[in-house]
Amino acid sequence: MDQRLETQLAHHGIWRAGTRSSAAIPGIPTGLAELDGLLPEGWPSGALTELLVGPEGSGALSLVMPALVRLGQEARWLAWVDPSYTPYAPALAQRGMALSRMLLIQAGGRPTDRLWATEQTLRSGACSAVLSWLETAEFRDLRRLQLAAATGDAWGILFRPGRALTEASPAALRLRVKSAARGGVIDLVKRRGGRTASLTLRHP
């Protein structure tokens, strides 16, 4: 290609499909060998990760579990905002999670409180990861959360219903997780500076 065109395209504001962005975001290792192929740079820290899940039992929590266990070694907190059920402590302990770093937040039924608690925990800088179960969220709410995650250097993990797939999102990473006969199917819907992909996982 023309040399001059090359230099123009080297501008950092231009993203070219097929090349990963050179400004790599420091990531959190996934801790799952199969997933590392899909996300070689790991989970994006200081940004939002959206997991679009089915009604129940999609295996989405297991995906992020190894990374959460690793983050649990830090002095910072792991906040769980309004999980659909009570995370079962013995199972978490079996997987090596530091329970004493866990912060369970019951924001009550109101969506505004849930968003507020998510934003506060992300922004505070006191949490290394924030897991939040958001039924509904507007684009501008997600944008706020994204900025809060960047400010607080926290990994924001949003569990959202599958129907949110059609909505636009500012999240750095979006994955659709579906359960299949003997494992799970992961569709990489969006990632910063990379192309979409798909992966089938088997249950351990």
């Binding site: 907190w77 013995p90 004493s100 608690a117």
Partner: peptide, 26 residues
């Protein structure tokens, strides 16, 4: 830049109530 965890918990409790922020124990 980094708020202490205690301050965060206090703020959450001030709005959501004392019982809304908890830990887990075996």
């Amino acid at each position: 830049m980094r708020e202490s965890g205690e301050a965060l918990i206090e703020r959450l409790r001030a709005r959501l109530g004392e019982e809304a922020v908890r830990g887990l124990k075996l």
